[in-house]
């Protein structure tokens, strides 16, 4: 397939995803606020079971806020998050922790902690006061460390690792928790491109092989489109579009959400939609500015003739080249 600059046909905004079968994690009329500032107002949401859901949107539009609420780290001002139909506020927090794992955007490790020690803390919700460490715990930790490729780092202090290694350790901790639902807030932020792909492949694999439901916040629309079964595009606390990426990612959507002019082309390798210029600059910049959708406006349609370096990664390279242009 050649990468021509043809935009995908506009599809109507997809309604609430999936059939009305009961998904495990849902939100109903969710209102989220910090002190006097409302970030999300009256939002309804269903996280499809057994799929990878990716949330995208400009900085400060409320992605982390929403994810924290889904993981009961933030108490809703109004409405509720339901797990298996029960309000999270009514479920013992330790019980939630056996079903829902969450990796915050910027977790902080205790000083001098070793990799193995940190990963082992992911077992906390499965431990009891009468049993400190079981064979099951050991297996889960070993498995999580192998999957994230940090086994060789086991005895190293976390604060001496590179940003990418550290991020993988945190992911290992979240994996060690072995929950059916896993919420990840920008798990690829500190990683170089090849590790980003590794992490996202790992997420896919967890989903495929173990049927885990994953919700990830990503800042790269192309990656989001590539890895999501279900994509949620947010802007200023609202959901602008949701559905299968190939159904909803259009130039109009990219323009509406990110304020960017772009062309959307099918990814030359995977066939998922790929937007030039959809990457949001440096993910940590202007985090506090509240500048929703204020990305650089100078956009030109750039069709992808980026250098190809290995199958499956060309789309990422393509968008990267575009973003820096």
């Amino acid at each position: 397939m050649t990468a021509s600059a043809s935009t995908m046909g506009t599809s109507p905004e997809a309604g609430p995803a999936g059939p009305a079968t009961a998904n495990r994690l849902t939100a109903h009329q969710l209102t989220l606020a910090y002190e006097d500032r409302t970030v999300v107002d009256g939002l309804d949401l269903e996280i499809p079971d057994g799929e990878v859901t990716v949330i995208v949107g400009p900085n400060a539009c409320g992605k982390s806020t929403l994810l924290r609420a889904l993981g009961r780290l933030l108490r809703p001002r109004g409405g509720a998050v339901l797990l298996d139909g029960t309000d999270l506020a009514r479920i013992p927090t330790k019980k939630i922790a056996r079903s829902v794992g969450l990796l915050p955007q910027t977790p902080v490790a205790p000083e001098a902690i070793t990799v193995a020690d940190l990963v082992s803390r992911g077992r906390q919700p499965h431990q009891h006061w009468w049993q400190q460490w079981s064979a099951e715990d050991e297996r889960a930790v070993t498995d999580a460390m192998e999957r994230t490729d940090v086994t060789a780092l086991a005895d190293r202090p976390v604060d001496e690792l590179s940003g990418g290694q550290r991020q993988r350790v945190w992911i290992a901790m979240a994996l060690a928790q072995e929950t059916d639902l896993l919420l990840l807030d920008e798990p690829t932020t500190y990683l170089d491109i090849s590790h980003q792909v590794d992490v996202l492949d790992l997420v896919r694999q967890l989903n495929h092989e173990r049927g885990r439901t994953v919700v990830a916040v990503l800042h790269d629309l192309n990656q989001a489109a590539r890895y999501a079964d279900h994509l949620i595009a947010m802007k200023t606390g609202r959901i602008v579009a949701r559905g299968r990426p190939e159904d909803i990612v259009t130039a109009e959507l990219v323009h509406e959400v990110f304020g960017l002019e772009s062309a959307v082309v099918p990814d030359p390798v995977t066939g998922t939609p790929s937007s030039s210029r959809a990457r949001l600059g440096e993910p940590r910049r202007a985090e506090r500015g509240g500048a929703c959708g204020a990305g650089p406006k100078r956009g030109v349609a750039e069709a992808g003739h980026g250098p190809k370096r290995g199958a499956g990664r060309s789309g990422a390279l393509l968008s990267r080249a575009g973003a820096r242009g």
């Binding site: 927090t93 977790p107 902080v108 205790p110 919700p125």
Partner: peptide, 15 residues
């Protein structure tokens, strides 16, 4: 062991 983690991480672990 859990209190020494950051607030969000500890809460996510059911503490």
């Amino acid at each position: 062991r859990t209190v020494s983690l950051d607030d969000d991480t500890a809460t996510a672990l059911g503490v």
